[in-house]
Amino acid sequence: MAKPKLALYWAASCGGCEIAVLDLHEKILDVANAFDIVFWPVALDFKYSDVRAMEDKSIDICLFNGAIRNSENEEMAHLMRDKSKLVVAFGACAHEGGIPGLANLTTKDAILKWVFKDSPSTVSNNGTYPQTHTRMPEGEIEIPEMWETVKALNQVIDVDYYIPGCPPQPDQIWGVIEYILSGQPMPAKGATLGAGDKTCCEECPRERKEKKLKQFFRPYEIISDPNECLLDQGIICLGPVSRSGCGALCPKANIPCRGCYGAPPNCPDQGAKMVSAISSVIDAHEPEEIEKILDQIVDPLGTFYRFSVPQSILRRVEKI
């Protein structure tokens, strides 16, 4: 039997998802042996034109990482969809927008204005901004168009599976690869692979008690007890609204979870769920006192949706 054909592609990504694949170390050779890798711009010398020339659905699996930030990303997403039987949104950026998705809390204009005009080190070159087409003396050159709104992969194409995490942990990636190679039937379309179906709290070794909170702390403000739940100590931790899978890496390093594994099953919106979770444990019955306590929770939007703004119910801030 011919080896299954594998493609890896990155859109608006940091490269960390690719590094996570390389962090399989020796096992990367097993991957190279088991699959016929037909496209991987980061490592192999195949070009966009090679992919365009392929027959539709001739790639068995495409692991797609990175968010959709510009015209090129979106074009490539469609191309990979056409050519692949299965498309997997790989990593937080493709899965739910990830850190680049925080850009939906501002606007494209604000980004361009700051970067190319207002930032203190920039010398404004007669109001020059990047242009998609520029006529230079020698000819015209092009760059892609930046989109206003960052999108997750399933907002531009149909996605078969999701592998969450920023980045997905190498042992989890390996688990998925082993599963595929075992030839067992693939799970139902839309399934999340390489992760658990509980919350991060379930994997966290810290001891949880009945929570009653009158005060919240920012992580740098206190030295937390290493054995007790961080949220119990008043440090905002997204463990209760994050999918299990990483092994609670952050709380194990005395750092609160920020939810990179995405929402747990049956949770349509991480931030909304976090609002519920925190509201249940605040120990106050008077509106003024409640407001005072809520004042201590800074930037709920950027914290509760750290990796998931584009995939949240509201998707972006309104332009006011």
Partner: peptide
């Protein structure tokens, strides 16, 4: 409804940040 009493003001803050 005590939960609601805390939840709605919290949510008001959140939607305000979303620009609503």
């Amino acid at each position: 409804n005590y939960k609601t009493l805390r939840r709605i003001p919290f949510l008001k803050r959140l939607i305000r940040e979303f620009g609503i």
